Amino acid sequence: MTTRLQGRTAVVVGGGQTPGAAMGNGRAAALTYARAGARVLVVDRDEKSAEETVLLVREIGGTATAHRADITIEEDCAALAQTALEIFGQIDVLHNNVGIVASGRTEDLSSANWRRGFEVNLTGMWMTCKYVLPHMRARGRGAIVNISSMAGLLAGGETIAYTTSKSAVHAMTRSLALEYAPHGVRVNAVAPGMMDTPMGVDSVARSTGARRDDVAAQRASLVPMGHQGTGQDVADAALFLASDESAFITGVVLPVDGGFTLKTGTH
């Protein structure tokens, strides 16, 4: 345990985990914030998964409470902010981790899948910010960390809905950072690359019928550093952006990708 977030409250949206062999970004973030001394509200659409994360937090001596919310429902976004305030009295960190991959060529992608990708990846994130920001503005402090993807920095031929929505997350992050900087609120994003997480590896293996080890090896071969990252790598970057160590940093999109985007000249 450290004291980097001692006495603070972190709301981790998407703090549960889908089934997988490795730890996901949201659960890793909840545990990392707790180790740094924060009290954590673990928010997830799957309440059982959120409760499992809470148990893990308590096992390491941290404080956490589970809360069920669907971020595509505006009332749920308002309620999660209110719940955090009722339980902990303050919100110092908002960590937005929810995302889905909407795949398909432009000509084949349904309008429903396009809308769903933006609803989850962008609109839900905007709505959680909408209901937390008034509290942060009133206190004159706060940090928001949006978990995006390196896909938002790259062109994607058959993932147009995903890449476009993640690019929009970057634009929203910068816009919020500029709007709320005078109020002492910082807004940054982390853009993970090839990560060994349930969403990154297990979901691909399930959808393609490939062996998990083969999927992991193929992804690792694309990374200049020679291996995939982990949910902990993302959580460590998020902790830096949430803590006072980054007190003069706002509007940044930080790739955590082992050098992947350097190959494209985009970084």
Rank of each mutant, 00 (worst) to 15 (best):
T9H: 05
V11P: 06
G24L: 08
G24T: 12
G24Y: 09
A28R: 08
A30L: 09
A30N: 13
Y33F: 11
G37T: 09
R39A: 15
R39T: 14
L41I: 03
D46P: 02
S49K: 03
E51T: 07
E59H: 03
G61K: 05
T63M: 02
A64M: 06
A66Y: 00
R68A: 15
D76K: 03
A78S: 01
L85A: 07
L85I: 07
E86M: 03
D92L: 01
G99P: 02
I100N: 02
I100W: 01
V101K: 04
S103W: 04
S103H: 06
L109D: 12
M127Y: 08
K130W: 06
I144N: 11
L153C: 11
L154K: 05
L154E: 13
A161R: 03
Y162H: 13
T164D: 08
T164L: 02
S167F: 03
V169W: 07
R174A: 14
R174V: 11
A177K: 05
R186P: 11
A189M: 11
V190W: 04
V190T: 08
P198W: 10
M199I: 12
G200V: 12
S203N: 09
S203P: 00
A205N: 04
R206N: 11
T208G: 01
T208N: 02
R211Q: 02
D213S: 14
D214Q: 00
R219S: 08
M225L: 13
G229F: 07
G229I: 01
D233H: 12
A235V: 06
A237E: 04
S243A: 13
G251H: 10
V253A: 12
D257V: 01
H267Y: 10
